[in-house]
Design a protein around this nucleic acid. Sequence first.
DNA 1: CTGAAAGCGCTTACAG
DNA 2: CTGAAAGCGCTTACAG
Lengths: 316, 316
Amino acid sequence: MRISATVEKKINQLATKHRYHPNQIAVSLRTGKSNLIGLVVETISGNFLGSLARNIEEEAELSGYKVVYCSTENQLTKGRELIRMLAQRQVDGYIITPTPGMEKDIEALQEQKRPIVLMDSFYQKTKVPFVLVDNYKAIADGMQHLFLKGLTRILFVTVDLDLTQVKEREDAFLSIMKEKKLPGKKWVTRMPYDIQRQDAINALRKTILEKKEVEALFFATNYLGLIGLETLQSMKRKIPGDVAVICFDDHDLFRLYPPGITVVAQPVEAIAKTAVQLLIAQLSGKQDKNKKKQLRLAAKIVIRGSTMKYKPYLIH
Amino acid sequence: MRISATVEKKINQLATKHRYHPNQIAVSLRTGKSNLIGLVVETISGNFLGSLARNIEEEAELSGYKVVYCSTENQLTKGRELIRMLAQRQVDGYIITPTPGMEKDIEALQEQKRPIVLMDSFYQKTKVPFVLVDNYKAIADGMQHLFLKGLTRILFVTVDLDLTQVKEREDAFLSIMKEKKLPGKKWVTRMPYDIQRQDAINALRKTILEKKEVEALFFATNYLGLIGLETLQSMKRKIPGDVAVICFDDHDLFRLYPPGITVVAQPVEAIAKTAVQLLIAQLSGKQDKNKKKQLRLAAKIVIRGSTMKYKPYLIH
DNA sequence: CTGAAAGCGCTTACAG
DNA sequence: CTGAAAGCGCTTACAG
């Protein structure tokens, strides 16, 4: 209160007149804080990660943090580089979609006590906080949905890929079938990761024809779901109708699906917000000891309605 | 050469051992350069801007620049904030998708001699370097394509939106029709920007039925193209067949189109790379006086083939 | 309470 | 040629 209101006003006027804004670089250097969160994802252009990124930014802003986006573009080496780059730029914390190639680097960050939260996947060995969809519960919920309709001969279509997410989903399917004393293994079919669309359609059609008793299809990923829909279309089988289809997906792809299909959707918004909150808890040192740091969030079951609207695109 | 090779080696070993990396914050503060390019777009999640962003990053990396992504999420005020934020973070240059709300801020940046390149759109009044698709030539090329097939009764479907890009396309259509001594105005139909999908389909169907002589449809944007395809489908009209359809679009949406449709595609890669090159020329002071700073690049005409493959998605 | 000085981690102009 | 000092623009601990 030693500076008079008039002087304060004058200074503020001058500041705005000359467009003064503190140099954040200098502030960062002096304080050691950048108010930046580094976000490393595989690709920003997909709907899932794009949506995650947007929600993360929104949530981070509430606490005064800015987000620096980085995408590895599915290149193994690029993730490591990005982490180093972010460290050089002194980001305060990291939110990372982990890939096998980055495990060592993430461990190194942890040793340096840098705040990290993983998203979408995690490492079995390394104990790093993470937030992801509860794959087991998601599959269980989806299957419950089919069981309630009296459908038990469910073809589980998954992909031949060594990813935790994918394996968890198949394991869930098998263990739930076992619980119900139903045969499991014979109802699992795996597509090669790099299979071409048409080949996948042919393969799936063959499998469906072989297993004539099939009552429902459960697709473990969104890509498989699209393949599956094309397959059924080519076989003139109807959804909803003689086939129940359920698909694990993120909700932004809904509009590609026909009405009637059931979707087990990633809780994108919740994953994003929770990840930020976990990170900010670390940043502010307010580590709530009672709070779990490895979270699996429930998926949402959504039935694709016929009234869904297209989102208006931007014009280009 | 005063430092012996052994010492140099030892130092490097120590540096890698201790994971030393220069603090970029300090470097930036001292040198006044951040090696950062600020990229401001409307939204990162669309295919067009996502693809642009990726290409920009790639090209920028060649010159040792990193890209900081910012998206305004179509909020008028956010663009201004972002520009200020980037200035505070001392980015070396800006690549911006301009919106009407940011004109003043961009002028201010120019006054401060900050390197800027606009993308995708531009300001009529303010003389800022830009790179965008040559809308006139794109429409001309597309129409030429139809004229060669003997089609002249072309319904030009556009949107009621006050954007330079959109207006340029309509003007192009009209002036080319005039050149050919064909009626123009009666073949232009404008959809309200915020029209719902089903209403748009109904409106378009009505227009097509009214103008029975229509031989071809030219959609001014990708969104309209999708609406148009649904309309034709609902009318049981075939592409290719009794209707020629041409659509102004960015190529990443191709896979949503049926075979046979002709697309006037944005040269995404070229726009991105050229924008970076223009910016880096400014940054390095190597301003080639002979080089134009306002560029309109030619679109590509692509006929959607039946053999196109789905891109394998990432798994989630 | 207040104003001047130290220092964040670098680079570079400068004195020796 | 080389090593020590100044300084980028801030914040904060400290002396007065």
